[in-house]
Each structure stands twice: as structure tokens, then as C-alpha cells.
């Protein structure tokens, strides 16, 4: 499996589908998992991007869309990993519990250029809100990305770039 080959500090270009989810979407997803409710997106093998994009200007695919602070999602992350999430993209450090859960579920945490939302919008080829649309910028967007630039923050063995 590819997750196991990547080491903390490695650079990586992501191609495929990622889902945005930040604070309120995490709260709802974690609650839905706990109550065994049907989830609005399939989390099995999913990559979650901690991002609340700016509005999409006319004629553009997406507005500015950089990462938000990952640690605010820490309390919900182990539940999402247990539900099948394999990758996360954000900025900043994670808690010990999250690093442990990443190792347990052989997932991976990526960093991407923080505060560079205009640049990152260039790598998004398709974007549409797919769940929790009432949350506005905190809705879940499905993004199709090409060569989206990442750095491995915590690898599947639980090793962190910050240590």
C-alpha cells in the first residue's frame, strides 16, 4: 500500500478526489458515526482536506482554497480514521492521540502550502459542494485535484515532520 512507502518530510503530488471538511462538518460527521447514522459521503479510503474555500468567482473553478489549522480537528479525527479515512491535508501540528490513530489505521497526514489559497486553487480541476450545504464555507466540497502539492506531516508509522 502506498501510504506505507511515504515518510514524514517527503514531497508528494496528489491526483484524484479530496473532500473538504472543517470544524462544523467534523462535529457533524463524528456525531453521525457515533449514532450509526448514514454518512453523507463515503469515508472509506477518503482524503479529507481541512479547508473552507472562499466563494467561487464567476468563471473560476474555485476561489482561494488553502488549508486551515488541523489541530482544531484533533478531537474528531480518531473517529473519522476508524470510519475509514486514509488521508488528511492541513497545516500545523497534531495531538499525540491523532498520531497514534494514524499509525493504528495506517493513514497519513499531509501539509500543504499554508496561506497560499490563490496558488492552490490552480491545482483544483473540479469543485462542488456535496454535503452540509447549509454550513456555507464549512460545507463538504468534493474537489478533483491534479498535482496538488503536499509534504508528508505524519506518516503511516506515526512519525512526524515536526519531531
Amino acid at each position: 500500500m502506498r501510504n506505507l512507502k511515504l515518510k514524514a518530510g517527503d514531497r508528494f503530488l496528489l491526483n484524484g478526489i479530496i473532500y473538504t471538511a472543517r470544524d462544523q462538518a467534523h462535529k457533524r460527521l463524528a456525531q453521525a458515526i457515533k449514532q450509526h447514522k448514514k454518512l453523507p459521503i463515503n469515508l472509506k479510503g477518503a482524503v479529507i482536506y481541512y479547508c473552507g474555500p472562499a466563494k467561487t468567482p464567476r468563471g473560476k473553478i474555485i476561489g482561494s482554497c488553502g488549508p486551515t489549522t488541523s489541530s482544531r480537528m484533533d478531537e474528531f479525527t480518531p473517529a473519522l480514521l476508524e470510519a475509514g479515512v486514509k488521508g488528511m491535508v492541513g497545516k500545523g501540528v497534531r495531538s499525540k492521540e491523532v498520531a497514534k490513530a494514524i499509525k493504528k489505521y495506517q493513514a497519513i497526514y499531509f501539509l500543504t502550502y499554508a496561506g497560499c489559497g490563490a496558488l492552490l486553487a490552480k491545482y483544483v480541476k473540479k469543485a462542488a459542494p456535496v454535503a452540509y450545504k447549509d454550513l456555507g464555507p464549512e460545507a463538504i466540497y468534493k474537489l478533483e485535484v491534479k498535482d496538488f502539492p503536499l509534504i508528508v506531516g505524519i506518516d503511516a508509522r506515526g512519525r512526524s515532520i515536526y519531531e
Binding site: 479547508c51 473560476k60 476561489g63 482561494s64 488553502g66 502550502y113 496561506g115 497560499c116 496558488l119
Partner: peptide
Amino acid sequence: AIIQNARIAKREKLAICQD
């Protein structure tokens, strides 16, 4: 990347940061 981001934001009238 940060400097390039500022250039793209100005040229394309995109927010420098989504926040």
C-alpha cells in the same frame, strides 16, 4: 510559494488567503 501566491492573487483577483 508565498510570493508566487501573492502574484497569482493580484493578477487573477483571487483572495490571497481563503480566510
